[in-house]
């Protein structure tokens, strides 16, 4: 399968990449590992005139501890994250998420964490060959006016299937976006729009530089469901974070529950999360209750467009959240 034609440019440093994005804006696309971008280009879903490769930007590949933060360069490979003891210890949900991304050969060596959170939303009606799509009217995301996933929807409901994004949101991460001359830091919670066509608040001249995870002394966990354990994207997932109180080790002081692969973005479930505050780490029935609240709240956003049935995926929200909470509680108490 061939790629459409484009001009390939390989800036030698970060500044050079920013300059190129400043000049070419919408005509250019950034290439990290290419395991999301090149697939979409082959399917004719986008045809950038210029590809700006991050290949030479080794300075964007690092995992380091800086005070009470973990900083990860955008171009760090999924394999490097899996191999990091720091991530395993302080941000276990991210380790567990990365371990499950695709399969070793493609995603782990080639795929990057930056590309993982910036991969486009997906939908079984949209992520198809040009030939398949030519047989019917284009949908919203394809430049048309209908949605095949939800009847009479006036907008696109494509799903964010990034494993990394769900785990990072549970960990309370933020990201640094840079454009020529300025830099901004944004919480992942606020990074997502509710628009399936352009799922994140990012300008075409911006580059993702870094992902920052606060070390809060809690424990995190990530669980996902996919058809096969390798190659396939998640059809539902959950990332959770639990922190014990300083005064009473067996009491939950802070909780964050995030559900992925169900809506246009990973969703932070505020009600289910706050329900757990003050509960005990060995209170299994509280975890069950929080998991059920998560399911109820997340189900309203769910759309039938990444395979399996909606009923099954919604039911499994509860199961994924429950398993993740149990695991985070067990490691907290160890």
């Amino acid at each position: 399968m061939r790629l459409p034609r484009f001009e390939y440019i390989e800036p030698i440093n970060f500044e050079g990449a920013l300059d190129l994005l400043y000049i070419h804006k919408d005509n250019a696309k950034v290439l990290a590992g290419g395991t999301d971008l090149l697939v979409r280009m082959k399917k004719g879903l986008l045809k950038p005139k210029i590809i700006i490769s991050l290949k030479a930007l080794k300075e964007l590949s690092y995992i380091k501890k800086d005070d009470s933060y973990i900083k990860i360069g955008a171009r760090t490979s999924i394999a490097d994250i899996i191999a990091s003891d720091l991530i395993k210890k302080e941000a276990c949900a991210l380790f567990e998420a990365c371990e499950k991304i695709g399969a070793v050969t493609i995603q782990h060596y080639r795929g990057t964490i930056g590309g993982n959170i910036l991969q486009d939303n997906r939908c079984i009606h949209y992520n198809q060959s040009a030939f398949h799509r030519s047989g019917r009217q284009p949908c919203h995301k394809d430049g048309g006016k209908i949605c095949y996933a939800r009847d009479a929807s006036d907008r696109c409901n494509s799903t964010c299937q990034s494993d990394g994004a769900t785990a990072l949101m549970a960990l309370g991460a933020n990201i640094t976006l840079v454009r020529k001359g300025t830099e901004r830091i944004i919480d992942l919670d606020n990074f997502y729009t509710t628009d399936g066509i352009m799922p994140f608040a990012m300008e075409s001249n911006e580059l993702l530089k870094e992902i920052v995870i606060p070390i809060q002394g809690g424990k995190s966990s990530y669980k996902r469901l996919a058809y096969r354990s390798a190659i396939d994207y998640p059809i539902v997932s959950a990332g959770v974070f639990l922190k014990s109180s300083d005064t009473s080790k067996n009491e939950i002081e802070d909780a964050r529950i995030v559900v992925g692969a169900i809506a246009r973005a990973p969703i932070f479930l505020a009600k289910a999360s706050s329900f757990l505050k003050g509960k005990k780490f060995n209170d299994i029935s509280a975890f069950k209750k929080a998991a059920d609240i998560s399911m109820d709240n997340a189900s309203t956003f769910a759309v039938h467009n990444v395979g399996s049935t909606l009923e099954y995926r919604c039911a499994m929200v509860s199961e994924m959240v429950f398993q993740a909470l149990k695991e985070a509680a067990i490691v907290t108490q160890e």
């Binding site: 399968m1 390939y8 290419g34 090149l38 490769s53 070793v104 050969t105 493609i106 060596y109 080639r110």
Partner: peptide, 18 residues
């Protein structure tokens, strides 16, 4: 994975490698 080749000692999919 039919297109797997080894680049700098790592197995990669040559269909997604420029």
């Amino acid at each position: 994975g039919a297109c797997t080749v080894i680049v700098d000692k790592l197995a990669v999919n040559s269909c997604l490698y420029l």
